[in-house]
Design a binder for these strands. Sequence first.
DNA 1: ACCGTAACACTAACGGTTACGATTTAAAAA
DNA 2: TTTTTAAATCGTAACCGTTAGTGTTACGGT
Lengths: 201, 201
Amino acid sequence: MTVPSGRRERKKAATRQKIADAALRLFLEHGYDAVGIRDVAAEADVAVTTLFSHFASKEALVFEQDEDFEQRLARAVTGREPHEPLVPALRREIHALVRHCTADSAAPIWRLVDETPALREYEESMRLRHAEALATAIAAGLDAAPTATACRTIARFVIDAYSLAREAADPEAAVDEIFRMIEAAWEVACPVGDPAPTAGP
Amino acid sequence: MTVPSGRRERKKAATRQKIADAALRLFLEHGYDAVGIRDVAAEADVAVTTLFSHFASKEALVFEQDEDFEQRLARAVTGREPHEPLVPALRREIHALVRHCTADSAAPIWRLVDETPALREYEESMRLRHAEALATAIAAGLDAAPTATACRTIARFVIDAYSLAREAADPEAAVDEIFRMIEAAWEVACPVGDPAPTAGP
DNA sequence: ACCGTAACACTAACGGTTACGATTTAAAAA
DNA sequence: TTTTTAAATCGTAACCGTTAGTGTTACGGT
């Protein structure tokens, strides 16, 4: 039950990467729909069952590092400066994430996603998971916690900001525009900071 | 090219309904995953290909009337009283829709959806379509139009409100809570109407 | 009465996904 | 070392949603 030290983990990670690389290469070259799972497995020189032991679905091959996304957002909340307000911290992280996915190097992947309905659909359900995770992080890492509904709402709004900004003509400006709206929404839900005379019902 | 009036349309609608009814009956009785497309087709006494000419996918059998949803939202925007502000009109419609889907008669269907990952996933991508349609309606039916990004953002937020409220412990209260946030977000994006004493930071 | 076409049927296949059982291989135990 | 355990991989065959291809029927317009 001790920590399995070393080689096995490395080999597994290597196999995973080999599969992801092969998949991306084939998808970008021939298109997502034109490439079958069996093609990817052959290109990566693994069995189909092995492929599915590393990735839950064909779409997951494309969004290989979506766990990073989830963790970065959560950490932007839980690991922020002691008294830094929530929304600006999230805005900074979303800015970074949008810059990252609109970089030239990432462009072909996102073009592939935009062109493939199955991938867009998958992305959406993925975002839902991210929103839930973020909502949990928000509810946990907050002094004066608002409603559970408010947490989930803001989490959704933040994820929406990412999705919408990614597709906007000027992604950076879109992030700022949407976050002005989120800021206003958050102040209504959680009137802290300069304590307005608590408009209690 | 004239409107094909009559029997043919009725028969087609009847077939569609027969399929939807059979599907729902089987799904509710045995569970979504335990029932195959071939089972549904047999129960409805149609060919599999006929089934797929009426419904685009297995999941679409469950969300049979999702076009209503889309149209109701669009009409809540375009068909509202001349000078009625946008957000309250949307809030009223979302209230009605939430009441509708949390009614006792609809409970079994939504329990089925909640229990079935495939259906939840499908619902999400469906909501995305609805948000896009709503964004278009908002951009069209608005005097002083804000940014395209702002329209899409508010549309998303409204759809989020529906999704979140549906799952909340007290759906009606959740709608109100979330719409207070949406209202604030909207005023930031589109500062018109009666300018409330703007609680500036 | 006749034609165009929309609706439906049937078969066969494709492609993502999984169950199953066998086999290898790293890591822990003896 | 040797033995043992469990994880990782493999190969096959199948399941199931979905679609293509090909007819057939029956309604509606002329």
